[in-house]
């Protein structure tokens, strides 16, 4: 099960990194619209909460 927690943590990290990269690198004309941005933020928060919740449970 530790594998699943690490994978969720990986996703939390890469969602953050890739979308920050797109935000910094790409011209505004080809950046995501609001709806996609909101969905990405929801997914990012979910994987963040899940990883930290599971890590907290693992070490308690």
């Amino acid at each position: 099960m530790i594998g699943a927690v690490i994978n969720a943590l990986c996703m939390f990290v890469h969602i953050g990194l890739v979308n920050w990269l797109n935000y910094k690198e790409l011209p505004p004309e080809i950046q995501p619209h609001l709806a996609r941005r909101i969905l990405i933020i929801i997914a990012f928060s979910f994987f963040g909460l899940f990883s930290f919740y599971s890590l907290w449970n693992t070490f308690n």
């Binding site: 996703m11 969602i15 890739v18 979308n19 990269l21 797109n22 690198e25 790409l26 080809i30 995501p32 996609r36 969905l39 990405i40 929801i42 997914a43 979910f46």
Partner: peptide, 12 residues
């Protein structure tokens, strides 16, 4: 969720 996550990766 993964569909939208992957599409942002493809965008780059």
């Amino acid at each position: 969720f993964q569909f939208f996550i992957n599409m942002e990766i493809e965008r780059y």
